[in-house]
Design a protein around this nucleic acid. Sequence first.
DNA 1: ACAGAAATGAGAATCATTCCTAAAGAGGTG
DNA 2: CACCTCTTTAGGAATGATTCTCATTTCTGT
Lengths: 122, 122
Amino acid sequence: MTKQQQIIRRLLEQSETHPTAEELYWEAKKEMPNISMGTVYRNLGQMAEEGSIVRLHFPGQPDHYDKTIHPHDHAICVKCGAISDVELSSLKSMIEDTLSVDILSYELNIQCVCNACQSKAS
Amino acid sequence: MTKQQQIIRRLLEQSETHPTAEELYWEAKKEMPNISMGTVYRNLGQMAEEGSIVRLHFPGQPDHYDKTIHPHDHAICVKCGAISDVELSSLKSMIEDTLSVDILSYELNIQCVCNACQSKAS
DNA sequence: ACAGAAATGAGAATCATTCCTAAAGAGGTG
DNA sequence: CACCTCTTTAGGAATGATTCTCATTTCTGT
């Protein structure tokens, strides 16, 4: 495991949000000024592939990465862009009960107005 | 409504799959050889925005378009790429019951091995 | 210390999608 | 029909996230 990998992994682990590759890149750059975007993308890609992190896809914006690999879903606020974790515990079994196919994975993304923005807007 | 719009709309309506913009473009080109990609994208984008069609997002591939606007979800086969409609009728209310926020929309995409590919693989 | 394997940095390449602009088209009015 | 205005189009350039390439650097095992 290289120094770059350690930094990327630690930064994601420490993050309370669901950062993009670019956000992690700028953070990493503070510790290792000549780290490259390619390295950040490559490592995040590998970690996602091996399952030690999760890659999140939201329409019209760059992918985000999630340190939490325990199955859960996400809601994104259309006003502030904040992404929050959502627990829909029975969803997986509900899908499996409904469909008669092998489910490999699924991604549920909810567009909402978060509580903070909801209060402000009033 | 222009001729281009009519063609795009009709082709999507006739389609049994969930075509991409490019697939619709090549189909449209058979009827109107100098229609442009920009026109296809622009019209699909407008229709999706006004809600008369639905835009589907799958990781790592171009967006697909769905003529069916009735709320439903999608499963994509990781072997053949086929996209099928899935009815999970109680999902919306389940999400709304669980979260205490205004849900504007959501997208659930399931990765699976479809029945056809499952049979073949045995 | 040294050979071979793996990872990096820098930047080029890719590819879906959007944007730009001059030209063409549609609609309304007299 | 002729004129004007607003909208849409075709074609191509621009964008932006991501991946790829490859020469160089770093790691690993002996």
